[in-house]
Design a protein around this nucleic acid. Sequence first.
DNA 1: AAGGCGTGGAC
DNA 2: TGTCCAAGCCT
Length: 351
Amino acid sequence: MTDFANRLISWQKIHGRHDLPWQNTTDPYAIWVSEIMLQQTQVAAVIGYYSKFMTSFPTIADLANATQDEVLQHWSGLGYYSRARNLHHAAQTIMDEHGGQFPQDFDTIQTLSGIGRSTAAAIASFAFHQVQTILDGNVKRVLARHFAISGWTSSPKVEKALWQLAESLLPQSDMVAYTQGLMDLGATICTRSKPKCTACPLVSSCLAQQQQLTAILPTPKPKKSIPEKNTTMLILRQGDEVMLVKRPASGIWGGLWSFPEWDDSVHQDYTAIARNQFGVSTTVDAPLASISHVFTHFKLHIKPQPLSVNQHALQAREANAIWLTIEDALGAAIPTPVRNILLELSSTVAA
DNA sequence: AAGGCGTGGAC
DNA sequence: TGTCCAAGCCT
């Protein structure tokens, strides 16, 4: 056993996290769901979603038998919705091709949609006590500092070196404490800013500490400017109901319900659009305050444009359109800006 | 291989 | 405030 692993394991058992909702179980399903939710998402943001999800879908079979809409509903607001679609699809794969049992073979685990090498290693170590290394943002930061490795840690060259390094450090036992220790150290001690080096079990061998490189490692991702886009969301209203449309299965907010969007760079005759696209007669109301929503790769300026529907239109003319009360819409699989617009609408109505 | 894919915490 | 980036994966 490497000294690195030894010290990490001992530290984790005393100072690590032991009471997160997805710990203290070897149920691969419970661990799997948590690992997917935690991809690129902080623990604090996941906790509420996790318990609700596990209550609604307690087993792989329950998840496989649910509709995609039900699954996305539970993911609404969490982001990266392909995770939910892949999770649902993988549950069906497990039912169809693995007899309903989560596979234990490391390579087979990685064939499931949404599970890459690091997530597979987390599941394999936590659920099956296999000797496989994770390599998430925490581990990259810990290794880049401890071994004074420069270069953006997600560049192919550096990442490959980090995988090899991480493998070389593995213990032959105690994989639960070791894997959790890697994450705990990165999340609570070896943090991006203001790391608590005096409390670190690995400080005595940390090269960044010795060479005073802690503040500049890991090397930050190269900066890139993101484009800005504009869109108008048409809010067709009749009484306390609004119309939502189902977005395409892939792309941003794939499979979620949203307001119909209109590129308003040219046409601004919203009444004509509503008549031509949705077959309803409307009058144009005052637009709501614009919303700016920042994604990883672009910034979206949304102009919410309410339209009052004059005639009875509560039968959706298109298969991908539905009319819902604002209350029901808030419970549907909607992205965050749509939720915020609905909340604004309901407060306006109430006031 | 590089970019698509969400949202919010931390500072 | 804006900036960085988080238990990454997919194409």
